[in-house]
Computed example of a mutant assay.
Amino acid sequence: MKNPLLLLLIGLIFTSCGKSKKNHTEVLEDNNSLAVEIDSLFNSYYNDDGPAAAIFISYNGKEIIKKTYGLRNVNNGEKATNNTNFNAGSMTKQFTAIGILKLQDEGKLKITDTVYRYFSYPIFKNVTIEQLISHTSGIADADRIVRHSWNSSDLMSINDVMDWYKNNDITKFSPGTQFSYNNGAYCVLVKLIEDISGKPFSAYMNEVVFDRIGMKNTYFVSEKNFGKIPNMAVSYERDSLSNWVSNDPYDFSNALVGPTGLYSNLNDYSKYLKALRQYQILSETSHELIFKPVSMDIELHSDNMQRLKDKESFYSMGWEVTDSLAVSAGAGFGINNWSIFKFKRPLSLVIFTNNDILFKENLVDKTYNIIDRYVKN
């Protein structure tokens, strides 16, 4: 594990970088040429015969590119638009973490509290809320365990995961000593939000985040809308004959929210990135925590972005952070998503796709390298 003093010092550097600054020595030059290069790149992989990609780039508060390519539904030929809702996958975790930080702002919990204080199950005795968020809790991933044994025609729920934790005390390591990605931990965070706020998770998140910053067309999966998200992008992968095939709507074990389960679009997510820059969602103190490193050194997403290779990176509040940027990814069947939030440069980027091309073709690096050439001193 990293030296606590070193983590503190790095955290101070990171959070100071995360603050929006009025004066920048760098400018993004020749936006038209940048748009042409991005177009050329994405048109090489996405067309009107296959699934979609959606990309948003902003710099210094200015929208540079907001564009979609391809189809949200290959079967009926319906094109993707800036309002098309893509399955965000694990990018959902950013918002779950913000829900917890909002409860802290309201004085209803502290992220340093033990989970046992709220759920007196033996497995949670020495685990803090912050450790759940940072994947350092050491508890078994009940989401994975319950999901793999699920054989019911009912939708799997947060309560099914919580029941497993109530009846099993299985840990992988002592809390805070290692990093191990854990979707089950984020199910516990959702249950905390619901019990403490007294509201359904989606209702609470709408109130404290989405409605507040104008994300009017972002949705969490629920029993009522399962497989029926408005403007939903159907997810695809190629079969052995290179035909695009879908698994939507997802099987009944895939309806959990918290670790995943969010559907959003370019128009809404771009508002979220702007709100992060302008400290509009949480108190200033809690905003600083969003990008403050919590875990030990990891290379969680280095396979998808080469600039993370051999660079110190840490997990924070749903993001992987280095000294210069934060990244968040969503991956799964027909889900390849990526978001970048730069600290030292006022650059934000998100790419949503309803297919597996983005990571297979290393498009994150290719996209970022194009953008980087246009940022000049």
Rank of each mutant, 00 (worst) to 15 (best):
L6V: 14
L7G: 04
L12P: 07
S16F: 13
G18E: 10
G18N: 11
E26G: 02
V27C: 05
L28S: 06
N32E: 15
E37M: 13
Y46W: 14
D49K: 15
A52H: 10
F56E: 10
N60T: 05
L71R: 07
G77K: 13
E78V: 07
T84H: 10
F86R: 10
F86Q: 11
N87C: 12
G89W: 02
Q104F: 05
Y116H: 15
F124V: 09
N126Y: 09
L132K: 03
I133D: 01
I139A: 01
V146N: 00
S149R: 12
N159F: 02
V161N: 01
D163C: 02
Y165F: 11
P175S: 11
T177P: 12
T177W: 04
V188E: 05
G214A: 06
N225P: 08
N225W: 09
Y236K: 08
E237D: 11
N243W: 05
S246V: 02
S246Y: 09
S246C: 12
D248N: 15
F252G: 02
P259E: 03
S264I: 00
N265S: 07
K271A: 04
Y272M: 04
K274Q: 12
A275K: 08
R277K: 14
Y279N: 15
S286D: 10
K292N: 13
S295Y: 00
M296D: 12
M296R: 04
D297C: 12
L300E: 14
N304R: 14
K311P: 00
V327Q: 09
I335S: 05
I340L: 15
N354M: 09
L358G: 06
L358T: 02
T367Q: 07
I371D: 03
I371R: 06
D372S: 15
